[in-house]
Design a protein around this nucleic acid. Structure first.
Ligand SMILES: NC(=O)c1ccc[n+]([C@@H]2O[C@H](COP(=O)([O-])OP(=O)(O)OC[C@H]3O[C@@H](n4cnc5c(N)ncnc54)[C@H](O)[C@@H]3O)[C@@H](O)[C@H]2O)c1
Ligand SMILES: NC(=O)c1ccc[n+]([C@@H]2O[C@H](COP(=O)([O-])OP(=O)(O)OC[C@H]3O[C@@H](n4cnc5c(N)ncnc54)[C@H](O)[C@@H]3O)[C@@H](O)[C@H]2O)c1
Lengths: 252, 252
DNA sequence: AGGCGCTTGTGAAGGCGTGCACAAATCGCG
DNA sequence: CGCGATTTGTGCACGCCTTCACAAGCGCCT
């Protein structure tokens, strides 16, 4: 439980720049969370623009400060060219390598209700190198159903299938009450990353990563800012304020 | 654009503790983001447990450090009792007041495709004081459709309906290409908080708060940690590490 | 009434992240 | 070939957040 902040100290063989990207930097978490945004911006720009981009330009496209962007990229030893900018293609390759997107990762989805159906039909998975290879549900009436060409299997088969398909990432879209049980099954099956949509805290071993997406929390944070804004408009210097949390709003 | 970090300095009338909760603390953003989690934990516990709870107990239920929890609660001037703990009912009231959940907030949802349908059918909105009062789509074949008893309207009606229903929060579930245009319409209609599911950066005036939920980013962050873990198992002291970003994993 | 155990609230310290400001590097052009 | 324009990479300072550690406060039991 104690947060051994991934004390990596990677075994970078001293002379291992055999043409490839450096071995493995231990990036700040804040940087990691932004890399996917840079990647998306690069893909959007790459379609129709020049083959290099300045930190200023990319930062604008990704909605961040340019100094932050440069520092982020410098962390992964990126090779920009002073006076010119970053090579778009090279940068995409680097970020994808660091994020491990060059290897296709098998994903399974548990819980095919309302939300699960939407997720199963989402093309944003495949377009980013993730492939949903299996669907699971506990409801016998759903087992066997075909969704996007994939058959819904019973959750009891998860252990077997996870090994067969080498599933690394599990997505939980069951009710909160079932989520912990599902997480346990996933962990037993060797899954080491979980994306949890159920509004609850999951307990997992230290080597398993959990991220959660909680709609209600997002709305409540917005609600707070609404509340605050409302209390401000009643004040003399009723200025408007910005930014909901880390997720900064970009001025128009 | 410059990040005026909501420089509030609220005009707290010096002697305004007229029986209610203190006027308006400017809470750290990190605290605000955790309050909903405490609230959920309290609701779960409140159902079947005692009428007070210790910081240790609540922290465990919310998956955080107990010192952090105490500091968070102290920020909103919470009245715990030393030697005893926090009064569950009172604490719920306080947090709900601060988050502005005592006032029902009207929400509209734009884009009723795959994801939009799931969101429209989600009961987690209503159970937290949010009410979806209108659905909008640009697709004429969808306009008129009834979803959960609500009729899908054309996006051109958004301006009018938003004023009628006093909509404060808009949820965007359209393709990324349409998201900016939808955001503009929402802003014009007076909406001041936006929850964006489309994978893109939105430009909005400084007084509008935007939060985004991006599935692909979450998966890519998990992918990074998978990548890192894989590179560690190949090392001599192949220890396992924990925590995916801020969203800490709880040890089993 | 007094003491004891428990729990809150907070001062202080350290770590992390951000953003400024500038030196170093590169390109293009005269 | 040299110079200026441009842009990267980063040292530094500042502020936010987290965590520890402990004094102050509260209730209960004797
Ligand atoms: N619908 C949304 O828009 C939305 C949004 C955010 C979060 N969520 C959360 O996502 C989760 C799912 O929401 P939903 O609306 O799809 O609910 P749902 O009830 O429609 O679907 C839940 C599915 O999980 C299956 N399930 C139940 N127990 C299971 C188990 N032990 N193993 C495997 N499958 C099991 C059920 O059979 C059902 O198919 C909930 O926790 C909800 O709070 C939903
Ligand atoms: N489906 C998922 O699980 C999922 C998950 C995460 C993010 N997303 C994102 O959410 C968004 C919606 O995903 P989806 O799968 O529901 O897509 P979808 O194509 O099924 O639905 C999009 C809907 O938006 C409507 N629309 C298009 N332009 C519009 C406009 N200008 N105004 C109003 N409505 C408009 C369309 O008519 C359609 O009904 C996408 O940006 C997607 O990337 C989806």
């Amino acid at each position: 439980m104690s947060q051994q902040r991934h004390g990596v100290t990677p075994g970078n063989a001293p002379g291992d720049r055999a043409g490839a990207v450096p071995a493995f930097p231990d990036l700040p978490e804040a940087t990691i969370a932004r890399l996917p945004e840079y990647l998306r911006a690069l893909h959007n720009l790459g379609d129709a623009a020049a083959d290099t981009i300045s930190s200023e330009g990319l930062a604008a496209a990704a909605g961040v400060n340019s100094a932050k962007l440069r520092k982020d990229l410098s962390h992964l030893g990126s090779y920009g060219t002073r006076g010119v900018g970053y090579d778009v293609t090279l940068l995409i390759e680097q970020i994808e390598y660091v994020l491990g997107l060059d290897q296709r990762r098998a994903v399974c989805l548990v819980g095919l209700g309302n939300l699960g159906h939407a997720l199963a039909g989402y093309d944003g998975f495949a377009s980013r190198g993730f492939k949903i290879v299996a669907l699971f549900d506990a409801d016998a009436s759903k087992v066997g159903e075909l969704i996007q060409g994939l058959e819904v299997r019973h959750i009891e088969d998860l252990g077997r299938v996870a090994v067969e398909e080498n599933i690394a990432i599990g997505v939980i879209a069951t009710p909160a009450l079932a989520a912990q049980a599902v997480a346990d099954v996933l962990v037993d099956a060797g899954v080491t990353s979980i994306l949890n949509f159920a509004p609850c805290v999951l307990s997992v071993p230290a080597n398993v990563d959990v991220r959660k997406v909680d709609l209600a929390i997002e709305l409540q944070i917005l609600s707070f800012h609404e509340h605050r804004k409302a209390s401000l408009t009643a004040l003399p210097g009723g200025r408007s304020a910005a930014s909901a949390g880390n997720q900064e709003a970009v001025g128009s």
